[in-house]
Amino acid sequence: MMEDKVISVEQLTKRFGSFTAVDSISFSVSRGEIFGFLGANGAGKTTAMRMLCGLSFPTSGKAIVAGFDLYNDPEKIKKNIGYMSQKFSLYEDLTIRENIRFYGGIYGLTDGQIKSKTEFMVQHLHLEDQVDKLVKSLPLGWKQKLSFSVAMVHQPKIVFLDEPTGGVDPVTRREFWTMIYEAAHEGTTVFVTTHYMDEAEYCDRVSIMVDGRIDALDAPSELKKKFNASTMEEVFVQLARKAKRGD
């Protein structure tokens, strides 16, 4: 079932001079899967993610993302994926409505689509009273939830989330994961990084990068069995302690 794979990566490698940031990684991710992409600081996660988003050319290896080849069609990949991170998400000096309009426009939605999307999102997030207020006036938790919705404005096949819950309060963190579950349930593939090890348990499968390689990849329950561990944190610590290169 090749069409079921929305990401397939073979021996993907990225070198910067003599430094191999990503060292021949291979994996695939299915439609509607929540895929946790874990690793210590400096293990190569960000470099790998930048390649998958079409932002950085690999040194070697193959990758098909959302049906498009990384070398030939990086622009088509960008149109078919969504991206959000803790660091960069929305424009603080634009209102909620303006942010949705801006991102909708970038992704080529029509005025009619943007209008209906705005209505749907604002209702879904209970932001009716806030829609014409500046994003900077929103509490962080709301910003992150809105940011996730905006990353999904063009109904991408895959959404990349880079530490989406960093610094967020524990209740909002869980509400955010409910949104992730909903998106996956509707068929969007979720590719997510996190430093919260409890969140690793919420993923369908988890990969753990060590020194540029993927040292483990499986469902959390299988990984715990394999490493004789009771939590994903123990699995992570066992693997990451083996790292030779500093971050």
Binding site: E163, G166, H195, M197, E233, V237, A240, A243
Partner: peptide, 10 residues
């Protein structure tokens, strides 16, 4: 320890 992985945090 914000943004730091679980091992480095320990």
């Amino acid at each position: 320890t914000t943004g730091v992985d679980a091992v480095s945090r320990k």
